[in-house]
Design a binder for these strands. Structure first.
Lengths: 253, 253
DNA sequence: CGGGATATTAACATAGTGCGAACGAATCCG
DNA sequence: CGGATTCGTTCGCACTATGTTAATATCCCG
């Protein structure tokens, strides 16, 4: 699961995929609209769109290009069913036990992708498109816990690639300070965030392993007025680590 | 939703996507394995894999490339939530009413993709990978009903692209015979299949429209010993057409 | 430790892409 | 209703970026 960014990389494919993602994000685009977004000649864009059409990644309704339903089905195949089931169980049970919100995120390419969260059942991003599903490592509980287990060199590669954008005031944006925190975390096996991601939000997180490497992170969080630091560090951290252990056992088959 | 296959098409992107799909189908591939499947130099394949890695469509675990979880999330965005909900309702209700199996499929690029079927709850292709999710038009009830509504020229384009593979003995594989059937169907608004798709299976199907064009097809089917031709043509066809009407109303918002 | 398979990098020639511009086809507006 | 504008598609050239072959590096097995 290492990601090294060297080696040859095909620009044609890259821009095709970029265009695909733009169409996805905008829920459909026409050539002219795309032309306004991307600084490339119309004719070029046209070739890319046409290729994506022929490969059935897009569909054309009148003049606007839309993501195909086939893309959704391809995406489904990318899900590893067992992980999804196990993670969902773990999250629901943890949420139940603690009364707080639990999440499992997949660790991939230096970021965390939400697989299942207890708040929004079934991960349907229903309605509002503003729902976030991808997180940084430096400002999330599970993320910091994961970073603490990686070699410093790897941490650096990730930070180089993604940076450490400030989410709110308390977000750590200085590498040295983050390194210090990671050293603290390393022994405990879990990390916390204290309003570093969103106002009033505190959380505990820990990595989940399978087959020797980190596949994601489990976390519990809630409003600061309900969770004080002792509860976070003791009660919740314990429950979290138990849940992680159960998950890892379940994955071990 | 027309698909015309002319215009420039980028070979680089095409092979990249082909490789992506191969990785998907095989649930992970190593470079050497891929090399055995695809007749291209290893180094070329390597560039493609590397590009897909960098774009986060793949993930590398040891030496095998796997579809990323991010791909699954991208796919989710391709789903139009309203359609999914409406189709699911329609299918479940129809299955309940008739006691037979109902399906809704999306019409795209000359094929039908299963959105929801009453037999397997929630469209999870759990377990067996052999589960089919993509159908031809010429040997399915909904497919024939759709073809009957298209202009002959369009029908030809689709048949040219996909052919008319024989599924079992009774499958229509002759264009002229299919044309005749389509003429029959045209007036009725629904089509039937009689063991043309699978042994013992009969079904009725009809197109579902939204905003003027065909977006998919609804169908009911079951074993021939339980469904005789009169029930199929009268009872089930009626219930089907009612369900289609309800779906189209629901979609009209 | 060494041999065979596998992955990665390097260098080169040309196919294939990017580009600009010209053409057509819609669509808007007075 | 028709001129003007926006949008989509096609064409041909230049040159970049890809495919390829070959060499190097890494891994994995006994």
């Amino acid at each position: 699961m290492l990601e090294t960014t060297n080696g040859r990389t095909l620009k044609t494919t890259k821009t095709s995929l970029r265009i695909l993602e733009l169409v996805l994000e905008h829920d459909g685009l026409t050539l002219a609209e795309l032309d306004r977004i991307v600084d490339k000649p119309k004719s070029s864009l046209h070739s890319h769109l046409n290729t994506l059409l022929e490969c059935r990644y897009l569909v054309k309704k009148d003049r606007t290009y839309l993501a195909s339903f086939r893309l959704a089905e391809l995406g489904d195949r990318a899900r590893r069913g067992d992980l999804e089931a196990i993670a969902t169980d773990a999250v629901e049970r943890l949420a139940e036990e603690t009364g707080e919100e639990a999440n499992f995120t997949v660790f991939e390419h230096g970021r965390l992708l939400l697989l299942h969260g207890s708040s929004n059942q079934a991960t349907e991003h229903e309605g509002e498109s503003g729902f976030r599903t991808e997180y940084y490592l430096h400002n999330t509980a599970a993320g910091k816990a994961i970073l603490a287990e990686l070699e410093r060199e790897h941490v650096d590669r990730i930070l180089d690639e993604w940076g450490m954008p400030r989410e709110i005031e308390a977000t750590v944006t200085d590498r040295e300070r983050l390194y210090d925190q990671l050293d603290d975390i390393a022994g405990k096996g879990y990390a916390i965030i204290d309003e570093e991601f969103a106002p009033g939000l505190v959380a505990v997180g820990a990595p989940v392993h399978s087959d020797g490497d980190i596949i994601g992170g489990l976390s519990i969080g809630g409003p600061k007025y309900r969770i004080n630091m002792t509860r976070l560090h003791e009660e919740l951290a314990d429950q979290l680590l138990d849940a992680v252990e159960r998950m890892e056992d379940a994955l071990h088959t």
